[in-house]
Amino acid sequence: MAQLQLANLRKSFGQVQVIKGLDLAISDGEFVVFVGPSGCGKSTTLRMIAGLEDATSGTILLDGGDLTRARPADRSIAMVFQSYALFPHMTVADNIGFGLQLKGTDRATITARVAEVAGTLHLAPLLARYPRELSGGQRQRVAIGRAIIRNPKVFLFDEPLSNLDAALRVQMRLEIARLHQRLRATMVYVTHDQVEAMTLANRIVVFNDGRIEQVGTPMDLYERPANRFVAGFIGAPSMNFLPVRTNGSLIDWPGIAPLALPAGKAQVVELGIRPEHLVAVEEADADIAGDIEIIERLGAETYAYVRVAGQPADLTLRLPGETGHRPGSRIGLKLDWSRAHWFDADGRVL
């Protein structure tokens, strides 16, 4: 059992409050991913859970027990750092067995446990090496090995894969997913990578400026963002935002014929639509039309950036990999109105 609960957690550095009251319940075996812009307090929150940073106020509960003031070592929590934080003067085996050695576990037991952990992480042939003789991915596996050997209740990961190249990142992402399936442990994972967040998370927590904007499953956040911030943050390429003016019961929108306003959306000032919910059509059938500025081909799909008169920003549009559209050509766009997001002046979804 490892149920983690944060209640009204706050943290100030000097006069500056960086964590402004967090409430979050993480259930046993859950994989929770923290995302948010740089400096929003993800690492600080993680470090408070680990006990590396003292909470200014609020509580951290693990299975009901208060560990807000507990020493890091007494929390049954393991942390994997972005920098791997391996001891350069110890072999892989000693790095993994470090915690057991400190406790004075007997040599035979340590050797056996290290071998077991190394086996599951494909590190067995590397046990005698020093960290600087390993690749980035191997180093990160050693760091994970050091974490799992202690059977902690909660795993904390702070951007563990961001120092790896793209291919290795995909591979390690799968390994972490496998690890979670196998251990069924509670994991809290910080990342900047949308794909990591979407694929690994049971639930994603979106941070902004020391507060939680929204918590939900990946598809929840993707399909039903609570506000403009989450809508813009989740999804790559990000959602298109189109300012609108309402004219009584009609949307008054430069470039297109006035539209009837759906019920309950009277306060709308901005419309959000994801790139895949814009459909390329003949200009005659289009809601809006514009000129293609740039085409980005990714192979399986293509992104088109479309300049529309009266819109402050280009609209992004997702097209199939093989597309006849060319930069400079005219394109008509139809909105999938059922997938549109309506925001009021405060950025809240209507």
Binding site: P72, A73, M79, F81, F98
Partner: peptide, 18 residues
């Protein structure tokens, strides 16, 4: 000495002497 190595010591429960 990188700070995170000392933090690992804290998390793993090393005594000051260790």
């Amino acid at each position: 000495i990188p700070g995170d190595l000392l933090e690992v010591c804290e998390i793993e429960g090393a005594s000051p002497w260790q």
